[in-house]
Structures are given as structure tokens and as C-alpha cells.
């Protein structure tokens, strides 16, 4: 008697699990890549699933991994916070992948410090000196007498690459004592908990728990990023293999639609179109 009950229960459980997924058995879209593009990708995914009932999955493993997945053909769209590197383009060519980028949004690279830090503005040269290790105390840049804790991103990060391109210089190494965090969120929480810390984030991630610093006198806002006066801004990309078609095309073109623009704006990113 007991056995029968057990069997009946397991059959019911199986039916429930199968029935649950029935409705969405179409071919899905797979996104992989940047943690900076993550909020946009996740919100687009939710919007897309609601509207077209196509399953969309999003992984946030860094721009470098996104590019690798695209080259290995294990994702449909690589979301990237930098453009493809020459090596990646070469690797893609040998595998017969033809990367086509389209801009999702613009993003400011906000330089953030602990809210207790009185420093309001830094020049690009000052930020570069901090990351090169030439400046080690906030006093040297007009702040309190307090050592600087330098926070950077991992080498896989597109944000790190953009930052190095724009601020430190491509070939110059970041100071060895710099601490590495693996995502925008991790940098934010580290900076918000550490007096004397400095880090950089996508503008969409910089909330009230950290203090954004003006760079060359310009404060990062969607407006200054859009009109180009904020010096540290960069485009974010969706990269596909060849010209996208079907649902992937619709997904990639969401940033041009009214709904897509609204989502990007609400998330704190800047519309390109």
C-alpha cells in the first residue's frame, strides 16, 4: 500500500515538472558576457519572455567569457562592455564566426569612493597616478591623510579594459597592491564598506552607497555621458555571429524600440539611439 502511494506521488511530481515547462519549448536565446550589461540583458530577457514567450537565458561571466562563448558558438549573443580585441577577431575567423556588433547603450565609467571621502573631483591624470601607484595617500589629491585602497576588476572584465584604455594606458600595469573584484556589484560593495577605497563602475551600478567623483570637473550623469562631455564613457555592445535574424534580431534591436529605450533609461544607462 505504502509503495503504491510513493509511486503515485512520484508520477504526479514528474507530470507537474514536465507540464511546467511545456509552454516554452521553442528555441531560446542564450546570452553570455559582461556583468555591466547584465541589468539591461536581464531586463530585456524578462520583457522578451513576456512579450514573445521565447525563453531567454542570461549569464554574467564577463566580457572576455562572452567573446569566448561566441567564438565557440555556445551563445547567440555576447554582451560586451568593450569592442572585440584583434586576437578575438582572429580566433573568431579561424572558427568561421563573423562577429557583428551593435550598440546597446552608452555607459559612463564612474569613479567611485567611500561616501565619507571629501574629495569631489579628480583629473584623469590623478586617477591614472593612483592606479599606477604614484599616488598612495588621499592627501596628495586634496583629501584627508588616509591611505588609498585601489580596487580594480579582473582581467576578463570589459570594464577593466575600457578603464585601462581611457585612463591608465593599455600597456601600463596597474599597481601591484590593487585589489581585484570580479563584478561591478562586488566593487560597489567593497568601496561602500572601505574608507579610503577607490574603484570604477558602470554608471548604472553607482547608487547612493558610494560617492561618484567628478572627472576633469565633469560629474557623471546620463546627460554628460550622452553629450560626450564626461571623459570616461564607452558604448556597450551585443555581438552576434553574422547579421542576426529572427528572434535574435528582434532582441538585438530592442534598444532602438520605445520600450527598450525606456528600460535602458530606467536602469540608469544612457540611450544611444
Amino acid at each position: 500500500m505504502k509503495k503504491q502511494w510513493g509511486r503515485a506521488l512520484s508520477v504526479i511530481a514528474l507530470v507537474v515538472i514536465v507540464a511546467n515547462g511545456r509552454a516554452e519549448a521553442k528555441n531560446g536565446i542564450v546570452l553570455d558576457g559582461s556583468t555591466t550589461v547584465g541589468p539591461i540583458a536581464k531586463s530585456f530577457a524578462a520583457f522578451f519572455m513576456n512579450k514573445y514567450h521565447v525563453p531567454v537565458t542570461v549569464s554574467e561571466s564577463g566580457s572576455g567569457n562572452g567573446a569566448k562563448s561566441l567564438i565557440n558558438k555556445s551563445c547567440d549573443i555576447a554582451s560586451m562592455s568593450r569592442s572585440m580585441k584583434p586576437q578575438e577577431l582572429a580566433a573568431a575567423k579561424t572558427k568561421g564566426v563573423n562577429p557583428v556588433s551593435s550598440v546597446v547603450a552608452l555607459d559612463g565609467l564612474a569613479i567611485v569612493v567611500h561616501p565619507s571621502n571629501p574629495v569631489k573631483t579628480l583629473t584623469i591624470a590623478q586617477v591614472a597616478d593612483i592606479y599606477k601607484g604614484r599616488v598612495t595617500n588621499w592627501r596628495q589629491v586634496g583629501g584627508p591623510n588616509f591611505p588609498i585602497v585601489v580596487i580594480q576588476r579582473e582581467s576578463n572584465s570589459g570594464t577593466q579594459e575600457s578603464f585601462k584604455d581611457l585612463v591608465v594606458g593599455k600597456e601600463t600595469p596597474v599597481v601591484g597592491s590593487a585589489e581585484t573584484q570580479a563584478s561591478n556589484g562586488a566593487v560597489k560593495s567593497r568601496v561602500s564598506l572601505t574608507r579610503g577605497a577607490i574603484g570604477f563602475l558602470g554608471l548604472g551600478f553607482a547608487d547612493a552607497s558610494v560617492k561618484k567623483v567628478a572627472v576633469n570637473g565633469i560629474y557623471p550623469t546620463p546627460l554628460t555621458v550622452k553629450n560626450g562631455s564626461y571623459p570616461l564613457s564607452r558604448p556597450l555592445f551585443f555581438v552576434t555571429d553574422g547579421q542576426p535574424s529572427g528572434f535574435v534580431k528582434q532582441f538585438v534591436e530592442l534598444p532602438k524600440s520605445a520600450d527598450g529605450k525606456k528600460i535602458i533609461k530606467e536602469l540608469g544607462f544612457v540611450n544611444k539611439y
Partner: peptide
């Protein structure tokens, strides 16, 4: 499962999708 199966957003999948969906 970081590199082989897990994604941060996705809907519940059906038993038929286990071969292709993360």
C-alpha cells in the same frame, strides 16, 4: 556548474529541455 549549466536569469525549464537549455 558556473561554466557548464548555470545562468543568472532563465525560466523554469521542462524535462524535455534538459538536453539543450541551461
Amino acid at each position: 556548474i558556473i561554466f557548464t549549466a548555470a545562468v543568472s536569469v532563465g525560466s523554469a525549464i521542462g524535462l524535455a529541455d534538459v538536453f539543450s537549455s541551461p
